[in-house]
């Protein structure tokens, strides 16, 4: 069933993931400005998630259908959060 598909270098991906984890912990320990820290650590989290999805979950070898199954729920998540913002966050 699997077979033909190429395997990325999983160990290298893992090194990247661990390195990024260490980086985000280090950044949170140095007290930069709060908003800068938040932006950086969540950017790192997104990069890690994308690394896992593309390589370990083989998203980069998948078709449009599978991509949309990953992306459409994310869009809905953004819509839901944005609409809830005035009701929940600013009360």
């Amino acid at each position: 069933m699997a077979g033909e598909k190429a395997h990325p270098n999983y160990v290298a991906v893992w090194f990247w993931l661990v390195g990024l984890m260490v980086a985000s912990v280090a950044i949170s320990l140095f007290h930069f400005s709060e908003s800068a820290t938040v932006v950086v650590i969540f950017t790192i989290a997104v990069v890690k998630a994308v690394l896992v999805a593309l390589n370990f979950m083989h998203l980069r070898f998948e078709r449009l259908l599978i991509y949309s199954l990953a992306i459409v729920p994310l869009l809905l998540f953004f819509i839901l959060t944005a609409v809830l913002f005035p009701d929940i966050a600013s009360h």
Binding site: L65, I66, L69, A70, V72, P73, L74, L76, F77, L80, T81, L84, F85, I88, A89, S90, H91
Partner: peptide, 27 residues
């Protein structure tokens, strides 16, 4: 394909919870 459909629903499940947390945390 079936697992991905399931994961799509899981993404929005955790998305709902995490999104709510972000909003509360902001407030």
């Amino acid at each position: 394909l079936g697992v991905w459909w399931f994961l799509a629903s899981e993404i929005i499940l955790f998305g709902g919870l995490i999104g709510t947390f972000i909003l509360f945390r902001h407030g």
